[in-house]
Write a protein that binds this DNA or RNA. Structure first.
Lengths: 217, 217, 217, 217
DNA sequence: AATGAATGAGCTTTCATTCAT
DNA sequence: GATGAATGAAAGCTCATTCAT
């Protein structure tokens, strides 16, 4: 029954998906759906939880624990891209629709995401330790790098899903090239250095969104 | 009037946004919205077009043409993160909602995106030329790398928008570190190398999504 | 300005006609229409009155007063069919739409109609007198016959308007054949005689519409 | 449920009838109406079909097959007037509103009407044969006469419905007198003869509607 | 345990009608 | 005198949700 829901939600989005359609695809009657899962919100939530768990477990199961950090990352990425490619609707639910509709769902996905980010963060830290040097990476930077890596992975998953003929392995390799070579340099103490910035820098402070004037008609 | 629409669409998404709400926020009556912009679809489309143009122009205006490739990328990224941070609803419309609701809108955003991808691609190629070496980057790989870079930027924009205290400059710096140091290695002929893969490799072929069983109830 | 209104009302009907369309076709702005004619109702009413007057005057002008009764009827019918054929929208307004929408308008048309019925009634009576015989037509019957004749004329006007290649003269001739030959027999004392009716006759009393049961779902 | 629809449609017309009103009169909620009959159009169509069938069947059932032509016509007319008098809203839907709103509905009614016209045509032809004479009626004329008869019947139905104290039997008798006595003469070779027409005859050719000047304000 | 039948609430869209100018 | 600009009110239609069975 959740399968049907994931499929419909993945293809239509939360709002455009109708309970009728889901019930029909599941081959059951609508009241039954309400009996098992109380409401559309709860149904969506259940989908998110199930698929979030499935994705994290797929990644965790794919990581080979004994390897060095890059090998672990490589294996994890391959598992990630494989899973998202095999469950495109689930991936759309998690990455697209859950973030699109309401704080509650976004939070559920964010929890899963932080799981993965934490794992990657620890990988990066471990790699830095392995380098047997003074930590060239400031602590605070690691979080941003992990975010970037995970974000790039997510985008590449979308891209691989939308582009014919891109395998999970290729996507993983592209990302490893893009990321690890760069991380490698960073960890070896060769960061990219910003050029001089002669002008005053208005973006120094956290940017506040400028509220557009409400009266525009 | 479009301002209000962007704000509502950005927060609620296309389907959950109601014309009532948009009109109210704009301070006008609903029929007026229909007088100026013919329908909900057209209104959404107008929002997308306006914001897509605003974003591309902001990036283009932010790039400093005389600099070397990494300097150009750096300045472009800063403009990008600044713009998205200042217009979070616009960014949500473009990156989240437009891709979620229907081919027509997705296509309008895809056009904008390809603009940017093309710009980045050319930057990468230029950087490779500047290295005065034999091209160590296979041609086909550049497209994937540009995708990864743009995707990472998009994800970091989301992240910066959602995380307190991250400035546009910091986001840009993180991404430059993550990407350019890596690209630098790549262009210097030091790609990351995948470890041996002893097992059979089921992901070699393009993955086909396994259709979930329809009968699950 | 009324011309435009008649045209639009004739083609679309009262409800489907929009004041926008009428104003546009008239080449003026909408508030001007409201300045001259206070509301949609009044505009429709004005159309009806103008066209009703035009029709009655056309018929009156077409009748040749010196002729015997059948000659007068013949000339009147030709004028009638000619006018309706030349002003199809006006005819549709009077015969179709005015009777379709609300008591008020129906009453205005009914007044015009009674004008004509009265004229025909008097013609029939005159013809009966001309026959130099005892009146074979009971008084009460004349009204019904006049109704039938006018009704047949109206229907034939619709038919002639909808059928290619039927001239006003042909329509008039068909109706004269149909009606006068019959009336001639009647006035000559040779009415059609109903066959014996052995069963009880439930329609003797004025029929009351059977109210359908309201609860049918 | 259709009963309520026929009643509302008959009184208000297609456009002025609201689904709310129909549902309320039917004693059900609006969505239920949409569940059973998909749209306002379909609902109207269903009304037309039901009432058209009911009317034709009532007429067919009322005709006594063994009688001579005039007797059959007499019985058919009585059934017709009885049915229309008993179902005034249905009659308004068929005769007034269905022809007023759109080709699709007009066509459905036209089909029913042609049924009846064909029946009458055949009756007239049979009567002419029964007269044991050379056919005095030119073939082409029969169509026009049948039209006139049916049209007169329709108009008389309206009239009988609008006039207090007119029974179905009286309406039928009036029409028989009006029509059959006339047809009798025609079939006996005594048509009405048009007087000489000394003037030029502008209506000889099929009349073309004079387009009213659009600019009148 | 399972559903056919039903609905309240809300959506997009339209249109007769009116001011401020 | 004439109108561009604006709106209140209502219509068709949909859907998440619930009883009675």
């Amino acid at each position: 029954m959740l399968d049907a829901a994931v499929r419909i939600f993945g293809q239509r989005g939360y709002m455009a998906a109708s309970m009728d359609e889901i019930a029909e695809l599941a081959g059951v009657s609508k009241p039954l759906v309400y009996l098992y899962l109380n409401s559309k919100d709860d149904l969506f939530s259940a989908c998110i939880r199930r698929e979030a768990r499935a994705l994290t477990e797929a990644v965790r199961a794919g990581v080979c624990p004994g390897l060095p950090a890059d090998g672990q990352l490589w294996s994890g990425l391959r598992a990630f891209f494989t899973h998202t490619a095999r469950n495109p609707d689930a991936w759309r639910v998690l990455h697209l629709h859950a973030r699109t509709h309401g704080e509650r769902f976004a939070a559920e996905v964010a929890a899963m995401r932080e799981d993965i980010v934490a794992f990657v963060t620890q990988l990066i830290a471990a790699a830095a330790r392995d380098a047997h040097r003074r930590p060239h990476l400031p602590e605070g930077e690691v979080a941003g790098l992990a975010e970037a890596l995970v974000g790039a992975a997510e985008s590449l998953a979308d891209w691989a899903g939308a582009t014919e003929g891109v395998t999970a392995k290729q996507a993983a390799a592209t990302l490893m090239n893009f990321a690890w070579a760069g991380l490698g340099d960073l960890m070896a103490g060769r960061p990219w250095v910003a050029p001089e910035d002669p002008q005053a820098d208005p973006e120094q402070a956290p940017v506040a969104p400028s509220v557009p004037a409400a009266q525009a008609g």
